[in-house]
Computed example of a mutant assay.
Amino acid sequence: MKKNILLVGTGPMALDYAKVLIAQNFSFQVVGRGQESAKRFEEGTGIKPFVGGLQKYLETSSVEDNTYAIVATGTEGLMSSLLSVLQAGVEKVLIEKPAAISIEELIENKEKLSVYSEKVFVAYNRRFYASVIEAQKMIEEDGGLQTMHFEFTEWAHKIEPLTKAPGVKENWFFANSTHVVDLAFYLAGKPIQWQAYSKSGVLKWHSKTNFTGAGITEKGVLFSYLSNWESAGRWAVELLTEKRRIYLKPMEGISVQEKDTIAVIEYKLDDSYDVQFKPGLYLQVEAFLADRNDRMLNLKEHTAISAEIFNTIIQ
């Protein structure tokens, strides 16, 4: 049965999705809000969006059967857009992470969304990086993961001058850092016994700036993490097997340190999709539209992880 695709949003992220959809030979409708972003979108894709916002579009257009929606609005508009497309009768939704402006907004809508939660998927595209897929193969070859360390340091000096909607920078850990946290526990399993610590610093726009923790996951993997937004650092995941240490640092690539050696060697991999398109997006969209959901995070799981894991880290 033919899929009808609705892309909600005309900003930079929506443009990245459009490039992938075009490359995969899908036709789709686009809904935007403002004239300026719609014009940039049309210039970048050749596709003219509907302008005036999602509510106006839904008032004037009926949602066809078997419609799959991709919601790629700004963070502040994700939840309202999600509720609107679901109530309009879309079949399946891929929504940009983290699906809400805050953990509180996500949990507040849990009951309302419960009937839909297994047909809504949150777009943590790093699960689809070529580096991550290759790292998983290496871990399996080595007999499994033993230990993991990860870091989600944010560059506060780059974030502070950004103009964002109210609430976005205040929830930056949820909106941005959970890229790393989601990937780490996707690879190692969810934590079952752990301690988390955080403290405030001098930043006026985010309540916590310094994080650390450690524990063991459901897969028996010992883990630790560290993040200091007022010092030096970067996003990274380090994966230790019996035979080697696998570095996703930067996360788009792989470096390997073999057991009993000092050298850290760059690992060559086929990352052509991640070079041509926003990393992870091509395979994520392909999986979403083909109903291959095993690597994807549904909204029910995301809400539980947000309440139990993300909330523990940030408290």
Score class of each variant (00 low, 15 high):
4 N>I: 11
13 M>T: 13
16 D>S: 14
19 K>C: 00
26 F>S: 00
31 V>G: 03
33 R>T: 02
39 K>A: 12
40 R>Y: 10
41 F>L: 05
45 T>Q: 06
46 G>L: 06
46 G>A: 10
49 P>H: 08
49 P>R: 04
54 L>A: 04
58 L>V: 07
61 S>N: 15
74 G>S: 13
75 T>I: 14
84 S>Y: 03
88 A>M: 13
95 I>F: 08
97 K>S: 10
98 P>S: 15
99 A>N: 04
105 E>V: 06
109 N>T: 09
112 K>P: 01
133 I>P: 00
135 A>N: 06
147 T>W: 08
147 T>L: 07
151 E>F: 02
152 F>H: 11
155 W>N: 15
160 E>P: 06
165 A>D: 14
167 G>I: 12
175 A>C: 14
180 V>E: 02
184 A>Y: 08
186 Y>M: 10
189 G>N: 07
194 W>S: 15
196 A>E: 07
201 G>P: 13
203 L>K: 12
209 T>N: 07
225 Y>K: 05
230 E>D: 09
241 T>M: 10
242 E>K: 11
246 I>Q: 02
247 Y>A: 02
250 P>G: 05
259 K>C: 01
260 D>L: 04
262 I>F: 10
269 L>Y: 00
276 Q>R: 12
276 Q>K: 15
284 Q>Y: 14
289 L>H: 10
295 R>G: 00
299 L>P: 02
300 K>R: 15
307 A>V: 01
309 I>W: 06
311 N>S: 15
313 I>W: 01
